[in-house]
Amino acid sequence: MSAPMVLAEADWQARERAHAERMRAWTGPHQERRARGEKHPVLDFLFTYYSHRPGHLERWQPGPGVVLAGPSARRFLERPAYVETEAGVMLDPAAFTGRRARTAEFVLKLLSATASRSPRLSCFGLHEWAMVYREPADSVRHAQVPLRLGSARTDEVVESMDIRCGHYDAFRFFTAPARPRNTLAPTREAQVELEQPGCLHANMDLFKWAYKLDPFVPAELVGDCFALAADVRELDMRASPYDLSDYGYRPVPIETAEGRASYARAQAGFAERAAPLRARLIGLCRALLADPAKPPEPVPKSLDHGTGNSA
């Protein structure tokens, strides 16, 4: 068993404050909108489709193999899976069993397979268009915002281009008429075989895989994955058929050659930005499955304070 890394009270408290402050840039406005009963067609997705609650996103955790020194660390004992040692408080390696181990095994398999492939950059975000194809106006998913080109022209765009969506959790929201137009037929069972690192949803889902391993993932890694998901979501919806100008979003018009080129450039940038995060999650899963008491790799300076979307 590896020797744990001990963090002095001042050090872990500084990391705790920094993480909470960083996440509140998203959680604060979301909670304010929710209190007013306001919906946001772009940002709500980060807290509704993904099930990690804002309070949990703000909450700092050290990850495995780290002892938190000082009297303040005893408050971590109020959370599941923490134990007290002579040096302080840490995650209990014995808590990494059963469901958590199975999750880590699946995440390792999925992310390793995804990382082994070259990015495909030719989908142009048509998955969002396929979700409203030939859909009655009162049934459109984001009914509070209009379609930028109207229903008929939106359908024409879908019919004029090949749809190449390999991500099951996008494909399952396609309208019935759109499903046969997809060149692939993704299923949950084929997820490991189909996911590829150019897919916007696969890169957003790094956030999901990080919090699914909670609390055995350092909060900074969860935060980096969330920041990536937030920026990818913006491109996802800017390239969608919706008119989001009232929310301050400039469209990426994928119905034009210029818009498709802009989308592919931004997509490539996100694939590059996601690669080290995927690698960190792969490394973490391997380490957890080998020795859940092993300290995580040293936390680098955050990779994702800024936006990766240049479209």
Rank of each mutant, 00 (worst) to 15 (best):
T307H: 07
H56R: 15
S72A: 14
W129L: 02
P295C: 08
A311M: 02
G98Y: 03
E156S: 15
L110W: 01
L149T: 05
P186S: 09
G125H: 14
D231Q: 11
D291A: 09
A20Q: 12
T307I: 02
L126S: 00
T27R: 11
Y242T: 00
N309K: 01
W12T: 03
G269H: 11
Q144D: 14
D11M: 05
R53G: 10
L68F: 01
D92S: 14
P186Q: 13
R273H: 08
G248F: 01
E78D: 15
C199R: 00
A178W: 09
I254P: 06
D162L: 06
H30Y: 15
A10G: 12
L288H: 12
L284W: 00
E156Q: 10
E255C: 08
L147G: 02
I163H: 04
P241H: 02
L68C: 06
H142I: 00
R188N: 06
L91W: 01
Q31N: 11
S116F: 05
F174I: 00
V217P: 09
V299G: 07
E258Y: 09
D44H: 14
V6K: 00
R172W: 03
V222R: 15
L277T: 06
E189C: 05
E58N: 10
R120L: 12
R33M: 08
R172P: 05
Y168L: 01
L303N: 08
D291T: 03
R33E: 07
A229S: 15
G223R: 09
L200C: 14
L235W: 11
K301N: 12
S72G: 13
P41M: 07
S245F: 00
Y263D: 03
R34G: 05
P71V: 04
L68T: 01
G125C: 07
V232D: 07
V145L: 08
D169P: 12
N309P: 05
Y82H: 15
V157E: 03
D138T: 01
W60K: 14
I163Y: 02
Y242M: 08
L235F: 15
A264P: 09
T175N: 04
A69W: 04
R79C: 09
T154Y: 00
A279C: 04
P54H: 08
E297Q: 07
L235E: 11
G283S: 10
A73M: 02
L110R: 11
A14R: 13
R33Q: 13
I254A: 05
A10D: 13
P41L: 12
P300T: 08
V192L: 14
L46K: 05
H201G: 12
E255V: 01
L288W: 02
R75F: 13
D92G: 08
D205Y: 08
L121M: 01
R181S: 06
D224R: 05
Q191S: 14
A69K: 01
A219R: 01
R53Q: 07
A25T: 14
V6C: 01
E234R: 08
G150Y: 05
L221F: 06
S240Y: 02
D169A: 09
A311K: 02
A152K: 13
L77D: 14
F124A: 12
N182E: 01
F124T: 01
Y263E: 04
E105C: 02
